[in-house]
């Protein structure tokens, strides 16, 4: 039994214990989760540990993980993957917060805003990546238009924005795709509570920057952090955009995993799956770290 007070009245709630009816009701959803996700993960882990009877490998070994982790290309690939995921998430987050604030301030009709923001959400990443390729490649539309307008002598002079060192094209796709998602998450919080609390801030003599720093950021932080984590986890593990718009070397981890998995040599498959599991572990570690940092920040804010 848990007791507390709501509006000065004593309230008691019973803690949910073992309830067979509840277990039966939850069983279908849990079965799907455990079989499809857990089962897939277990099978993947088995293959990553070298259990691939079809290829004549039956012995369990950690060699595939070791080989990947000790590969001289691994740190570079890991760094590139972090660069892509982190940079695109941070840029998308900053632009999304600015956009959400502007939309709230100008009180733009919410139906129109939601429609405009939902358009990029419906376009698959692959389609955006191909469009970027047509637009930004040295022989792409923008290069030709720039040459036609006399801005550059020939399309070949156009700066390299796809398959480039800094993964500019990849970042552009992710930023364009993720801004609407983060903006909608932040906007819903701002529209629900942000306006009233900002007025409280004004009456309590907080200036514009103080209102942003001490009211808006803490208000949107949980939603923003959740949205950023989702975006980070997705971009860290997605392979199709870096596969199309990235350099052939170094590869991002998902591209490396895909190539290894699809290799004609079946012996490379366990390595591919091992990379996939490493990606999953890194994402989980990032989520755990951000949750811990969030708690730390909240503790500081409230003086605990």
């Amino acid at each position: 039994m848990v007791s507390g007070q709501i509006n000065g009245r004593d309230v008691r709630t019973r803690a949910v214990g073992w309830n067979p009816r509840l277990a039966v009701l939850l069983a279908p959803a849990l079965a799907v989760m455990l079989l499809l996700f857990g089962g897939g993960l277990a099978l993947g882990a088995l293959q990553a540990l070298g259990h691939l009877p079809g290829a004549g490998m039956a012995e369990l070994t950690a060699d595939h993980f070791t080989r990947v982790l000790l590969d001289p290309d691994f740190p570079t690939s890991l760094g590139l993957t972090f660069h892509i995921a982190l940079t695109s998430t941070v840029i998308a987050a900053i632009l999304s917060v600015a956009l959400a604030l502007a939309l709230t301030r100008w009180a733009v009709s919410s139906r129109l805003v939601h429609f405009v923001l939902q358009v990029p959400l419906t376009v698959p990443h692959l389609v955006v990546a191909v469009s970027m390729l047509f637009l930004l490649a040295p022989a792409g539309l923008i290069a030709r238009l720039a040459a036609g307008a006399g801005l550059i002598a020939s399309p070949g002079e156009f700066p390299l924005l796809v398959n480039d060192r800094w993964a500019f094209g990849i970042l552009l796709v992710y930023v364009w795709k993720e801004i609407p998602f983060i903006t909608l998450m932040v906007l819903s919080v701002l529209q629900n509570a942000g306006g009233e609390l900002l007025e409280v801030g004004r009456t309590l003599k907080a200036g514009a920057w103080q209102r942003f720093r001490f009211i808006l950021l803490p208000v949107i932080a949980p939603s923003l952090a959740a949205a950023c984590l989702i975006v980070f986890a997705f971009t860290f593990g997605a392979f199709e955009v870096p596969y199309l718009l990235g350099r052939t070397y170094p590869m991002s981890l998902p591209v490396w995993a895909y190539r290894s998995y699809m290799d004609v040599d079946l012996a490379a498959r366990p390595e591919g799956i091992a990379i996939g599991l490493i990606i999953a572990l890194v994402v989980m570690g990032t989520v755990a770290l951000s949750v811990w940092l969030n708690r730390l920040a909240r503790g500081r804010e409230t003086g605990r």
């Binding site: 009233e196 609390l197 009456t203 803490p218 909240r298």
Partner: peptide, 27 residues
């Protein structure tokens, strides 16, 4: 002038003391 609104509108991310001291901190 300071206004107290219909709803208490305390900052949910701050404890009670930090809420009360908010305006002083801004000053």
């Amino acid at each position: 002038v300071v206004m107290v609104f219909q709803k208490a509108l305390l900052f949910p991310f701050l404890d009670v003391a930090a809420n009360i001291g908010f305006g002083l901190k801004m000053q």
